[in-house]
Design a protein around this nucleic acid. Structure first.
Lengths: 158, 158
DNA sequence: TATGAAAGCCTTTGGGG
DNA sequence: CCCCAAAGGCTTTCATA
């Protein structure tokens, strides 16, 4: 788990491929990067053990789950102290509509990415789960038209 | 790929488990949700075919890749028209530092989540890749102290 | 839509270069 | 650090209800 891990070009190829498809078979992965399957297994295990690979997750379409309306909530928490901040984060993360939370520098302290079923539910979220709390000084809401996301590595072949 | 997909409680359990660990074996997944392995394979295939599951990706630690400094860039693009907007998005997505791009309502049109090696590289990104372009009216930069993220479903057991 | 059984392939381990 | 080879387990298919 040390912060500095040496990554060979082969490791980077493996990461790129697993980032694009976490369920590629070890055999195919080995063939794609040009090493033996057993070697590949070793390398992937090492990438996991050193914390370079932190997990593998299926991506689920929020809209298909009945939450087609996404938004960013910019939240100012005052006073900005641990005894208030830590429970606030816990609260955010316990909400099923919350997809991600970021603690930021700048005038707004937190950014919450949420997916809701409707404008009404979004309003409820803001009024009942955020501004109703004493430590929440203000909330700005921006809707998400569209988004693109990926891992920290460009896909293979670029 | 229709927008409305009926999801049984078993489907939701499957989604939760795959969201948490995309490499769980089909056998274990079937046992966890209480159906036969062959049935489970069918259900997962259906979830894929209907677009509920859109992919499966290994999570890679950006810091371990040498990009420990994350930030959000709020970008105003003027004039806000397709002939300018579409190439701008393409440009953002082609940058290796960019992890996600959001097209938003509000005074700032785009939000880019970036991971950089240093403050110097972040500065270069802002000056050379963003404000150097005619259509970029302004950029606000906020650093990310910490972030938490997950899929649109709460984990199993909550 | 769900199941069980069988065939084949993949993962995984251990020895060796 | 890499590879080969073998054993065991898993995936996947298909007939059946």
């Amino acid at each position: 788990m040390s912060e500095n891990v040496e990554l060979s070009p082969v490791d980077l190829d493996i990461l790129r491929l697993l980032q694009n498809d976490a369920r590629i078979t070890n055999k195919d992965l080995a063939a794609a990067v040009g090493i033996a399957p057993s070697t590949c297994l070793d390398r992937v295990a090492r990438l996991r053990d050193t914390g370079v690979i932190t997990g593998q997750h299926a991506s689920v379409d929020a809209a298909k789950l009945g939450r087609p309306l996404e938004a960013f909530l910019f939240v100012q928490v005052r006073p900005h102290r641990r005894p208030l901040v830590d429970p606030f984060i816990e609260h955010l993360l316990s909400l099923p509509e919350v997809r991600a939370v970021y603690h930021l520098t700048g005038p707004d302290d937190f950014l919450a990415h949420v997916a809701t079923s409707s404008a009404g539910e979004l309003q409820r979220l803001v009024l009942d789960e955020l501004t109703a709390r004493d430590e929440v000084a203000r909330v700005h809401t921006n809707l998400v038209f569209q988004h693109w996301s990926g891992g920290p590595l460009l896909p293979p072949g670029t």
